[in-house]
Computed example of a mutant assay.
Amino acid sequence: MSPLTNNDLRRIFEKLDQNGDGLVSLDELNWLLERIGVQFSLQELESLVGLPCLGFDEFIFFYDSISNQTGGDDEDEEIIDGDDDGESDIAKAFKVFDLNGDGFISSEELQSVLLKLGLLDERSGKDCRNMIHYYDTNSDGMIDFEEFKNMMFPTIS
Results as ranks from 00 to 15, higher is better:
residue 1 M to L: 14
residue 1 M to Q: 15
residue 2 S to I: 03
residue 4 L to V: 08
residue 5 T to Q: 10
residue 6 N to H: 10
residue 6 N to R: 15
residue 9 L to N: 08
residue 10 R to D: 05
residue 12 I to W: 15
residue 13 F to H: 09
residue 17 D to F: 12
residue 18 Q to D: 09
residue 23 L to A: 10
residue 23 L to F: 15
residue 26 L to I: 14
residue 27 D to C: 13
residue 31 W to L: 06
residue 32 L to F: 15
residue 35 R to C: 10
residue 37 G to P: 03
residue 38 V to K: 10
residue 39 Q to M: 07
residue 41 S to K: 07
residue 42 L to N: 10
residue 43 Q to M: 07
residue 43 Q to T: 12
residue 45 L to H: 10
residue 48 L to Q: 13
residue 48 L to F: 12
residue 53 C to L: 01
residue 56 F to K: 09
residue 58 E to A: 13
residue 59 F to T: 08
residue 65 S to K: 12
residue 65 S to R: 13
residue 65 S to W: 04
residue 68 N to E: 01
residue 75 E to K: 08
residue 76 D to H: 09
residue 81 D to K: 07
residue 83 D to C: 00
residue 85 D to M: 03
residue 89 D to W: 03
residue 89 D to K: 08
residue 89 D to L: 05
residue 92 K to W: 03
residue 93 A to F: 08
residue 99 L to V: 09
residue 105 I to T: 01
residue 107 S to F: 08
residue 109 E to G: 02
residue 111 Q to A: 11
residue 115 L to W: 05
residue 118 G to W: 09
residue 120 L to W: 10
residue 121 D to I: 09
residue 121 D to T: 13
residue 123 R to L: 08
residue 124 S to V: 05
residue 125 G to R: 11
residue 125 G to F: 12
residue 129 R to C: 13
residue 135 Y to W: 15
residue 136 D to T: 03
residue 137 T to L: 07
residue 138 N to M: 00
residue 138 N to D: 05
residue 140 D to A: 03
residue 141 G to E: 07
residue 141 G to F: 13
residue 142 M to K: 15
residue 143 I to K: 00
residue 143 I to T: 05
residue 144 D to H: 01
residue 145 F to C: 04
residue 150 N to S: 09
residue 151 M to T: 01
